[in-house]
Computed example of a mutant assay.
Amino acid sequence: SICCLDRLEISLSRRGWGSKLKFSAGLSVLLAALMGLLVLATVLGNALVILAFVVDRSLRTQGNFFFLNLALADLLVGGFCIPLYIPYVLTGEWKFGKGLCKLWLVVDYLVCTASVFNIVLISFDRFISVTKAVSYRAQKGMTRNAVLKMIIVWIAAFLLYGPAIISWEYIAQKTILPEGECYAEFFYNWYFLMIASTIEFFTPFISVTYFNLSIYINIKKRTPMRNENLAPGQEDCETSFQGKKREHVIFFVKPTARQRDKKRRASSLSPTRPCGSSMANRVRLSRDKRVAKSLAIIVCVFGLCWAPYTLLMIIRAACHGQCVHHSLYETSFWLLWLNSAINPVLYPLCHMSFRKAFIKLLCPGKAKIHPHIFM
Rank of each mutant, 00 (worst) to 15 (best):
A156Q: 10
R137C: 06
D108H: 05
S135D: 15
T143L: 13
Y136T: 10
V134A: 13
K149P: 00
V116C: 14
L148R: 14
S129F: 05
A157V: 13
L121Y: 04
G97N: 03
R144N: 08
Y136Q: 10
I119C: 12
S115N: 10
V116L: 09
K132M: 06
T91W: 02
R126C: 01
I122E: 01
Y109I: 01
K98G: 00
K95C: 08
I151T: 13
Q139F: 00
L105S: 12
V111D: 03
I122A: 03
G141V: 05
G97P: 07
N118T: 12
T131K: 13
V130A: 09
I155A: 14
F127G: 05
N118C: 15
D125N: 15
L160R: 13
V120M: 12
I152V: 15
D125K: 01
L105T: 11
Y85Q: 08
G99H: 10
A138S: 12
V89G: 01
W104V: 02
K98R: 15
L159R: 13
V147S: 06
V116R: 03
F117V: 00
G97A: 03
G141W: 06
R126T: 02
Y136R: 04
T131M: 08
W154F: 13
E93M: 11
V134N: 05
L105C: 06
F124W: 15
P83M: 09
M142A: 06
L148Y: 12
F124A: 15
L90R: 01
A156E: 09
T143E: 02
T143D: 04
V89T: 09
I82A: 02
T91G: 06
I82L: 13
L100F: 08
A138Q: 15
Y88V: 01
V107P: 05
K98P: 00
D125E: 14
F117E: 01
A133C: 11
D108K: 00
A133G: 02
F124Q: 13
I128G: 00
T91K: 04
V134L: 09
Q139D: 10
S123K: 15
L148C: 10
I86N: 04
Y88M: 06
A114R: 01
I128L: 09
A114V: 02
Q139I: 00
L103K: 02
A146V: 03
W94I: 04
W94E: 09
L160T: 14
T113Y: 10
E93T: 14
